[in-house]
Simulated scan of single mutants.
Amino acid sequence: MKLYFPLIAVAGLAMLSACNKNDEPEVVGGPADPMAEKLANAAPVELPPSVKANKQYRCKDNSLIFVDFLSDDKTANLRTDKTGSPTKLVAPEAGKPYVAEGGYEVSGQGNDVTITVPGKGAQSCHV
Score class of each variant (00 low, 15 high):
Y4S: 12
F5Y: 11
P6V: 12
L7I: 13
I8P: 09
I8T: 09
V10H: 04
A11N: 04
L13F: 14
M15Q: 09
M15Y: 06
D23N: 07
D23F: 06
P25G: 00
V27A: 07
V28I: 15
G29R: 01
G30T: 11
A36Q: 08
A36P: 08
E37W: 02
L39A: 10
A40R: 15
V45Q: 08
E46R: 15
L47H: 11
L47G: 00
P49G: 07
S50N: 14
V51F: 08
K55E: 07
K55M: 14
K55A: 10
Q56R: 10
Q56G: 08
Y57W: 09
R58D: 04
R58P: 02
K60Y: 10
L64F: 09
I65S: 11
I65K: 10
I65V: 02
D68V: 00
F69P: 02
L70E: 05
L78N: 04
T80N: 05
K82N: 05
A94E: 11
A94F: 10
K96A: 00
Y98V: 07
A100Q: 06
G102H: 08
G102E: 11
Q109N: 04
D112P: 02
V113H: 10
T114H: 10
I115Y: 13
K120H: 05
Q123F: 08
C125Q: 06
H126C: 13
